[in-house]
Amino acid sequence: MILTISVMLFIGLILATGAERIYELVVSTRNAKRAFESGGVEYGRGHLPAMIALHTALLIGAMVEVIIFDRQFPGAPGWIFLAVAIGCQAARYWFIWALGSQWNTRVIVIPGAQRVKKGPYSLSWLRHPNYWVVAIEGIALPMVHSAWITAVVFTALNAVLLLGFRIPTENKALKGLR
Rank of each mutant, 00 (worst) to 15 (best):
A19M: 12
D70C: 03
L59P: 00
A90K: 13
A62H: 01
H55P: 08
H55G: 10
M63C: 13
G87N: 03
S38R: 14
T56G: 12
E37I: 02
V64P: 07
A19H: 01
A19V: 12
L25I: 04
A76K: 14
A35W: 04
A50N: 10
M51R: 03
A57L: 09
N31R: 07
I96Y: 09
G87H: 03
I68T: 06
F36Y: 07
E24H: 05
A19K: 07
G39F: 08
A19Q: 06
L25N: 11
R34Q: 09
K33E: 15
L25Q: 13
I68H: 10
E20Y: 11
F69P: 02
E65S: 06
D70H: 10
G75C: 08
L25P: 02
V66A: 04
G61L: 00
R34W: 02
A83V: 00
P49D: 03
P49M: 07
G44C: 09
V84Q: 01
I60E: 07
Y23Q: 02
T29I: 02
V26W: 09
F73Y: 13
D70A: 03
D70Q: 07
L58Y: 00
L25K: 14
A91I: 13
G75D: 12
G40E: 09
P77I: 04
S38F: 08
T17K: 01
Q72F: 03
A76P: 12
Q89T: 12
H55A: 04
L54R: 01
V41L: 15
T56N: 09
R45D: 09
L48T: 09
Y93L: 13
F95V: 15
W79G: 13
E24A: 04
Y43D: 12
A76Y: 15
G40C: 05
V27N: 05
A85E: 00
I80P: 09
M63I: 07
G39Q: 05
S28W: 02
R45E: 09
E24R: 06
G61A: 01
I67S: 00
I96K: 06
L59W: 01
P49N: 10
A53D: 02
A85C: 02
T56S: 14
T29A: 11
G39I: 05
I60K: 05
G39E: 03
G61Q: 00
A91T: 13
I22F: 04
Y43F: 15
I52E: 05
Y43W: 14
T29P: 02
I86Q: 02
G78L: 12
F36A: 07
I67C: 02
R34M: 08
T56W: 11
Q72H: 11
I86S: 00
G44E: 04
A91G: 12
M63Y: 01
H55W: 07
P49E: 05
A53M: 05
T56F: 14
I86F: 11
F73A: 06
F81K: 00
G46W: 08
V64W: 11
A83Y: 01
F95W: 15
A50T: 10
E37D: 06
V27H: 07
L48N: 12
I52Q: 03
F36M: 09
V66K: 02
N31K: 11
I22G: 00
G44Y: 08
Y93M: 11
P77D: 04
V41R: 15
Y43I: 10
Q89K: 09
P74L: 11
T17H: 04
G100W: 12
L59G: 01
Q89H: 14
E37R: 05
A90L: 14
